[in-house]
C-alpha cells in the first residue's frame, strides 16, 4: 500500500502498533498521568511565587507555583494546574519536568525554554495546537517576575511589552498590534503590511499568537 499523504494536522501514528491518536505517545502519557500537578490547597509561604495566564473564555488557563533555592536560584519545586485541551495539560506537565529535572534549572536557564522546546520533548503537537496551548512558559514567566519582585530584584523583571518579534526587521509586538487594529486578521494580511517573519521564519509562531491575541482583544 502507498504511504498515505501526510497532512499537517494528521493524527500521530504509533510506528509499532499502527494505532492512531491525535497526539504523540508522550503527550498521551502526560495527559493521562500529569506530573507535578498541584492537588492540595496551598499553605501560606509554601511556595515562593505564583503566576497565572489565560482565560476560560479563550479556552486555556495555566496556573504555576514555584519554589526557588535562594542561593543557587535553582527551581526546587514546580507545581501547576491547567484548564485546557490535551496538549495544554501535557505541555504544562512536560514544562514542570524540564524545569525541575537534574536538580532543577536556574531561573535564568528556565526562562530560556521556548514553546518549541516543550513541543520537541513532547514528540510534536498538531500544528494548530502549538500557539494556543503551550502557554505554561508565560505563566512561569509571571511567577518568576513575582519572585524577582518579592526578592527586591526589580531590574530583573521581564516585561513583555515592546518585545522584538522579528529580529531581522526589528519588528515588535506593538507593530503587530497596530497592524491588527488597521484590520489585518491573518498572518498573510499582517505580512502584507509589515513583511514580518518573511526573513525570520522562526518568528512565525509568535506572530500568529500575537495576531490571535490582538484580534480577540479588539474584535472579540
Amino acid at each position: 500500500m502507498d504511504t498515505p499523504l501526510k497532512e499537517p494536522n494528521a493524527e500521530v501514528v504509533n510506528q509499532h502498533t499502527k494505532q492512531q491518536w491525535v497526539y504523540s505517545d508522550v503527550v498521551k502519557d502526560h495527559f493521562f498521568h500529569p506530573r507535578n500537578l498541584l492537588l492540595d490547597a496551598v499553605a501560606p509561604g509554601q511556595f515562593d511565587a505564583e503566576g497565572m495566564v489565560g482565560s476560560p473564555a479563550c479556552g486555556d488557563v495555566m496556573y504555576v507555583w514555584i519554589k526557588v533555592d535562594k542561593a543557587t536560584e535553582r527551581i526546587t519545586e514546580f507545581k501547576w494546574k491547567t484548564f485546557g485541551c490535551g496538549s495544554a495539560i501535557a505541555s504544562s506537565s512536560m514544562f514542570s519536568i524540564m524545569t525541575t529535572e537534574n536538580d532543577g534549572l536556574t531561573l535564568e536557564d528556565a526562562l530560556k525554554i521556548r514553546p518549541q522546546d516543550v513541543m520537541l520533548r513532547l514528540g510534536g503537537l498538531p500544528n494548530r495546537k502549538i500557539h494556543c496551548s503551550v502557554l505554561i512558559d508565560k505563566a512561569f514567566k509571571k511567577a518568576v517576575n513575582e519572585y524577582f519582585r518579592s526578592t527586591g530584584q526589580h531590574a530583573r523583571i521581564q516585561v513583555d511589552g515592546a518585545r522584538v518579534i522579528d529580529k531581522r526587521l526589528n519588528i515588535t509586538d506593538h507593530d503587530i498590534e497596530e497592524a491588527v487594529l488597521e484590520g489585518a486578521k491573518t498572518l498573510e494580511e499582517v505580512q502584507k503590511k509589515l513583511k514580518v517573519g518573511v526573513g525570520d521564519p522562526d518568528a512565525i509562531p509568535d506572530i500568529e499568537q500575537l495576531i490571535r491575541f490582538y484580534s480577540e482583544k479588539y474584535y472579540g
Binding site: M52, V53, G54, S55, P56, A57, V61, Q209
Partner: peptide
C-alpha cells in the same frame, strides 16, 4: 476538575472575555 485551576459560577453572568490569553494583567471578569 482536579487539574483545572478555574471555577466558573453557574449564574451565567460571566460575560465572554475580550481579554486574550497572554494578557499582562488578569482577566477583567
Amino acid at each position: 476538575r482536579q487539574i483545572s485551576p478555574v471555577s466558573i459560577e453557574m449564574d451565567g453572568t460571566v460575560t465572554g472575555a475580550k481579554t486574550a490569553f497572554v494578557d499582562m494583567g488578569r482577566p477583567h471578569w
